[in-house]
Simulated assay, not measured.
Amino acid sequence: MSHPLFDTPLIAAPMAGGTSTTALVEAVHNAGGLGFLAAGYKTPEAMSAEIKATRATGIRFGMNVFVPDPDQLSRSSPPALEAYRNELEPEAARYGVALPALRVDDDDAWQDKIDALLADPVEFVSFAFGLPGPSVVRALQKAGSTVISSVTTVPEAMAAAEEGVDALAVQHQSAGGHTAAFLSGLASSGAEAPRTTAELVAQVRTAVGLPLIAAGAIMDSSALQEVLAAGAIAAQVGTAFVRTTESGARQAHKDALGSPRFTSTAMTRAFTGRFARSLVNEFVSDHGEAPEGYPAIHHLTAPIRAAASAAGDPERLNLWAGTGWKTATDGSAKDVVRAYLSGL
Rank of each mutant, 00 (worst) to 15 (best):
D313F: 05
R277G: 06
A302C: 08
T323K: 06
N281L: 07
A306R: 15
S309W: 01
F271D: 02
A276V: 07
S285K: 13
A308Y: 07
F283P: 01
R316N: 10
T268G: 01
A321L: 08
V280I: 15
T327F: 11
H299P: 05
F283A: 01
I304H: 04
I304K: 01
D286V: 00
T265I: 07
L319I: 10
K326D: 09
A321H: 05
I297S: 00
S278E: 00
A290R: 04
H298P: 06
E315R: 14
D330C: 10
L317F: 05
R316H: 15
A270G: 03
R316I: 04
L279T: 03
A302F: 07
P314W: 04
F275N: 11
A328S: 15
M267P: 02
S309G: 15
E289G: 00
T272F: 02
N318T: 03
E282K: 12
L317I: 14
G293T: 07
P314K: 08
R316Q: 13
G273D: 06
A306F: 02
G324K: 04
D330R: 13
S309F: 00
E315C: 03
H298T: 13
T329K: 14
E315H: 15
R269S: 06
G273A: 13
T327E: 14
L317M: 15
T301A: 09
P314N: 06
V284R: 01
D286F: 01
I297A: 00
A290Q: 05
A311M: 04
A270Y: 02
E289Y: 00
